[in-house]
């Protein structure tokens, strides 16, 4: 078998195993309470009837591992369970919100990735100049700030003072694509600032690293232009770590949306999960938690596989 196929197959198998263990951990996370989950959800003043009803809903009379297998097999068949708070099937609650969250993360990614890579290449090309230092200071501060700080600064300046964009990102079914895009301007900007900072710094580091190799010096001695050396000689060999960091940051976006959705009152899955935690709606927390975690695991797996595929040394091995 070609070593590439073998490596990728190994990673995929590892990813499947990780997904299974992650699902068990998410399930176990709601089981770590020493007492009774039903009592914890309702609090001390609950009537025995209410406690009994929730116990039955959650099937607490059966052993945990049987409930886990039940839950997992339901999940795989598309049955996400029922919300404790309003008795609505969780699949219905999530469908539209998942789409909203993916839209937000997708737009942020489509904007952030090209900007970050361009900035990274520019900073590496002009390294140690004022331009490089300016980019470095801005990105370091963006990394040090909590997302909600960046979010509220943007709201204050661009929505409240300048009236350029809405402060609350309300989207609804039937909205046109352009309107939707306009509505999410600020949340996309907030998310982008954070991931651009990370991606740009890693892109710069990867290129600077390759630029130190002897073959770059050869290219310089041949009299090639700096731009040609950076783009044609350094970039292909830096591509593998860059792709890796891009996809890992996309995985980070999946989690970053939780706080950003709350800042901008955006009807996405992060908001739903936070509300469910506050209401102790355990089935909804489990379902949203596993979707977030699975997306994260799958994106990290994609990062692994793409990094293998982009590495010329492995691709051309015989």
């Amino acid at each position: 078998m070609h070593p590439l196929v073998k490596l990728v197959a190994q990673r995929l198998a590892l990813g499947a195993g990780t997904l299974l263990v992650v699902s068990a951990l998410i399930f176990a996370g709601t089981e770590i309470l020493p007492g009774d989950v039903a009592q914890a959800i309702l609090g001390q003043s609950a009537t025995p009837e209410a406690v009994a009803a929730i116990r039955e809903d959650l099937g607490l009379d059966r052993p945990a591992w049987i409930r886990y297998l039940d839950w997992l097999s339901g999940f795989l068949r598309g049955d996400l369970g029922t919300s404790l708070a309003n008795r609505v099937p969780i699949g219905e609650m999530i469908a539209g919100r998942l789409e909203n969250t993916l839209f937000l993360a997708g737009v942020a990614a489509a904007f952030a990735v090209p900007v970050a890579i361009t900035l990274g290449i520019v900073a590496a090309r002009y390294r140690e100049t004022w331009l490089d230092k300016a980019i470095s200071i801005v990105t370091l501060s963006a990394i040090s700030m909590p997302e909600f700080f960046i979010g509220y600064i943007l709201i204050f300046v661009f929505a409240v003072k300048l009236f350029w964009v809405p402060s609350i990102a309300s989207v609804f079914p039937g909205m046109s694509f352009a309107d939707r895009l306009y509505a999410v301007t600020l949340p996309v900007a907030t998310l982008s600032l954070v991931v651009i900072a990370h991606m740009m710094r890693m892109t710069r580091a990867a290129i600077v690293n390759v630029m130190a190799s002897p073959y770059i010096e050869t290219a310089e001695l041949k009299g090639l232009t700096r731009a040609r050396i950076t783009l044609r000689h350094a970039l292909p060999n830096a591509l593998s770590p860059i792709i890796n960091v891009v996809v890992i940051n996309l995985a980070y976006l999946v989690v970053g949306v939780v706080v950003v959705e709350v800042v901008f009152v955006y009807p996405g899955m992060g908001q739903l999960m936070v509300d469910a935690v506050a209401k102790r709606d355990v089935p909804v927390v489990q379902a949203t938690g596993i979707i977030f975690a699975a997306t994260y695991v799958l994106l990290n797996l994609t990062a692994d596989v793409l990094a293998i595929l982009a590495n010329p040394r492995i691709r051309h091995a015989r």
Partner: peptide, 20 residues
């Protein structure tokens, strides 16, 4: 490794859904 495969915030939210 397995614990790190889950995003920190998501795992904390899951646990805080049942713990005070």
């Amino acid at each position: 490794d397995t614990l790190m495969a889950i995003p920190t915030l998501i795992f904390a939210l899951v646990v805080l859904a049942v713990l005070p």
